[in-house]
Amino acid sequence: MYNAYNDISQSVSQISAVVIWLGLVFLTSAILRHFGHEPELVRKVVHIGAGNVLPIAWWLHVPFGICLAAGILFSAIALASHYTNILPMLNDVGRKTYGVFYYALSITILVALFWEQHPQYVAIGVMVMSWGDGMAALIGKRFGRHTFVHLGNQRSLEGSLAMFVTSMAVIVAILGFSQDLQWRNVMMSVPVAAIAALLEAYSPGGTDNLSVPLVSAVLSYFLQ
């Protein structure tokens, strides 16, 4: 009975910490919207902030079942939001794609594949997408001078470079946290980050939110 109580108490604490973090992310986005900041900035704040949930869940040892259930729930909410706009901070950037749904779906798939044995690769996939793509958008919008268009999506070389550098940093940091910092991790991060940057630039219609995390995580796993 005592052990069962401890398990329940621990699960409640873990879930509460994640919910509090997400609450802070969405509160920040609401404040930014209230003061008239650009929708793209608001969306990227949520994009990056939501991605940080996975390292937090990893650090807190949130069980597989809870993570998988949360991923399925958020995937359903994201899909519903595509049609009902219940998450306006994610959908009001002048384009209508399934990007938010793909983002949640990729997290769910990665949790199903890796969470029980290799949670670091879930963190890599999601953080490459959240921080890499987020920095690509923000840097590209602010400093992008050399632009190119693919399937109607405008990108910049400056944004792609930001994606590449950020992805490398994320991979090295996560692997350094989960194991001793090794030179081969730095070397391995280069091709993974390069492919992630290419996928971010050329995946159409928000599918980079699916391709980037899945490919980054799987490649990192096989190159280790």
Rank of each mutant, 00 (worst) to 15 (best):
N185C: 00
I109R: 10
L68A: 06
L138W: 01
V215D: 06
H146E: 09
H61T: 09
R43K: 09
S211H: 12
Y102N: 07
S9F: 01
P39I: 12
L157C: 08
N185G: 13
N185T: 08
P213Y: 06
L24I: 14
A193V: 12
L210M: 14
V18A: 08
P88V: 13
S160W: 04
T108H: 05
S29I: 07
N6R: 13
R142M: 11
Q182W: 07
C67T: 04
Q182T: 12
H34G: 07
W58M: 10
A76F: 13
W183E: 08
H82K: 12
N185R: 00
A30I: 00
D133E: 09
M168V: 12
D133W: 07
S106Y: 03
V218A: 13
I139H: 02
G65F: 04
L151Q: 13
N6M: 13
V212C: 05
P63V: 02
L198D: 01
I124S: 05
Y103P: 05
S9N: 14
R43A: 09
A194N: 08
A57E: 06
N85H: 13
A137Y: 00
S13Y: 15
P204W: 11
H150V: 15
L22R: 00
K96C: 05
I56C: 07
L198Q: 02
T97E: 11
W59Q: 10
V170K: 03
A70H: 01
H82T: 13
L73W: 12
A196D: 06
Y121N: 02
V218N: 03
I15K: 00
V218I: 15
S160N: 08
L210C: 09
H34E: 14
Y98W: 13
A104G: 06
M135D: 00
P204K: 10
A57T: 09
A123H: 04
Y202A: 12
F177V: 11
F101K: 09
F164S: 03
Q10I: 10
T97R: 03
N85P: 01
Y103D: 07
Q182I: 05
A217N: 04
V19Y: 07
Q120S: 11
Y2F: 15
Q10W: 13
Q224H: 10
V186S: 05
Y2Q: 15
G206Q: 06
V186K: 01
L90K: 03
A137S: 14
A193L: 08
L214K: 09
G125K: 02
I174W: 01
V42W: 08
E38F: 10
M163G: 02
I174C: 04
L138N: 00
D7V: 05
V122C: 12
R43C: 05
